[in-house]
């Protein structure tokens, strides 16, 4: 209940500073890309199998991905906008792990899966 409304001038970002920063950021990106290209000449080996248990676990709630306000307390700005639950696949050492997370429904990342889902539903 500790709500407080502070009236404060919105600090304007200096356009010059913004332009400079954008340039620096691009430089770091560029540099990173080039570094990689020099480091790795050959084709990388593939190590991207999705572990079966991920699929198994998700079959049951395949159509239940509405998420949103499902107990995500920490998120104040979610407001009314719906979110989608995804599994993030990570490696810990050689072990694969998944963690559940919520992604905004309008995230480009899941556009294609959503389309697919919609197509499936129509069938």
């Amino acid at each position: 209940d500790d709500e407080v409304h502070v009236r404060q001038k919105v600090a304007e970002v200096d356009p010059q500073e913004e332009a400079d920063f954008e340039l620096d950021l691009k430089a770091v990106m560029q540099e990173s890309m080039e570094q990689r290209r020099q480091e790795l000449r050959g084709r990388p080996t593939l190590n991207m199998m999705i572990p079966m248990n991920v699929f198994e676990g998700s079959i049951k709630d395949h159509h239940g991905r509405v998420g949103g306000d499902s107990g995500d307390e920490g998120d104040e700005e979610s407001g009314g906008s719906k979110e989608v639950q995804v599994k993030v696949l990570v490696k810990r050492g050689n072990k694969q792990q998944t963690k559940q997370m919520y992604i905004p429904r309008d995230c480009s990342l899941i556009q294609s899966t959503k389309q697919k889902e919609a197509a499936e539903l129509e069938e």
Binding site: M48, K87, L89
Partner: peptide, 10 residues
């Protein structure tokens, strides 16, 4: 990136 059919991302 996400999987084609599943809500799995990496």
């Amino acid at each position: 990136i996400s999987a084609k059919t599943e809500s799995v991302v990496v």
